[in-house]
């Protein structure tokens, strides 16, 4: 198992968000987290790279093991963890820099300054993110001139440039048109050969199309998890059934 979550509870201040989460996420797979808004799936996702630590009142207990190491353990360096566990956000958020500098950013902050090496990684990452052909001749133009879908793929390229192990995606297509969404989904199934992907999505079709495993979150609990086709075709819990049938949420 790539990621193993045992009895994980989390919240902000006095507000409890996640209750006793237990989940196993296998290597080189896409795991979709589905559930209605406010059910805690984003908070859970942001627990995997300790992004929640940026909020001062975040507190949690229980374990999240990545490669059998507890990431909330004392010996963990959060900076290394986040390098290893990349994140793609809901809203494409390229830096106000050139396309090239966006992808090179992560390398530079990790102390790589050799121009030849950087340019090789930039090209490779943009190719992997299926963006290279579209931006090849305007690498030094501002990333903010790209379309929304291109910006999101640029963010994926930026994430894979630092060579992570796991990629977390927080509703990466929620602001995109159907064609851009399709491109990102193709990209996701391409990327899972090299990375372990955890995908939060509101789009049931997307979960069905692009994930291998699905976990259904409701009110901060995992109601059901397993193979995507089992969850969608043969849900064990009545709540899961209601949700995927569109009866609530």
């Amino acid at each position: 198992m790539k990621i193993e979550v045992n009895h994980f509870n989390a919240g902000f201040g006095n507000m409890e968000i996640l209750k006793d989460i237990n989940l196993k996420i296998p290597k080189h797979s896409v795991t979709a987290l589905i559930g209605p808004s406010g059910c805690g799936k984003s908070t859970f996702l942001r627990s995997i790279n300790r992004m929640n630590d940026l909020s001062r009142d975040f507190c949690c207990n229980g374990d999240i093991l990545i490669n059998s190491m507890n990431i909330y353990g004392d010996e963990i360096d959060v900076v290394d963890l986040r390098k290893n566990v990349g994140m793609v956000f809901q809203k494409a958020n390229p830096f106000p820099m050139s396309i090239y500098d966006n992808v090179a950013y992560g390398l530079r902050i990790h102390g790589i300054h050799d121009d030849y090496e950087i340019s090789k990684v930039v090209e490779k990452s943009l190719k992997q993110a299926a963006l290279w052909e579209e931006v090849e001749d305007k690498l030094f133009e501002s990333a903010l001139n790209l379309s929304g879908g291109q910006q999101q793929r640029l963010c994926i390229a930026r994430t894979i440039a630092v060579n992570p192990d796991i990629i977390l995606m927080d509703e990466p297509c929620s602001a995109l048109d159907p064609i851009s969404t399709l491109k990102i989904e193709e990209l996701i199934s391409e990327l899972k050969k090299d990375y372990t992907i955890v995908l939060v999505t509101h789009n049931m079709q997307q979960a069905k199309r692009s994930s291998d495993y699905t976990a259904f979150f409701l009110n901060g609990e995992v109601i059901e998890s397993g193979l995507t086709r089992n969850i969608f075709q043969n849900p064990q819990e009545i709540k899961t059934q209601d949700y995927i049938m569109g009866r609530f949420g």
């Binding site: 992004m51 986040r82 958020n93 902050i109 963010c155």
Partner: peptide, 23 residues
């Protein structure tokens, strides 16, 4: 400074000081 620039930088494994200086 937009929160999502900072988050993106933290997400790539920046230290707090790198976020301050670069973003």
């Amino acid at each position: 400074v937009p929160e999502n620039y900072k988050e993106a930088s933290f997400g790539l494994g920046s230290t707090h000081w790198q976020v301050i200086r670069n973003i």
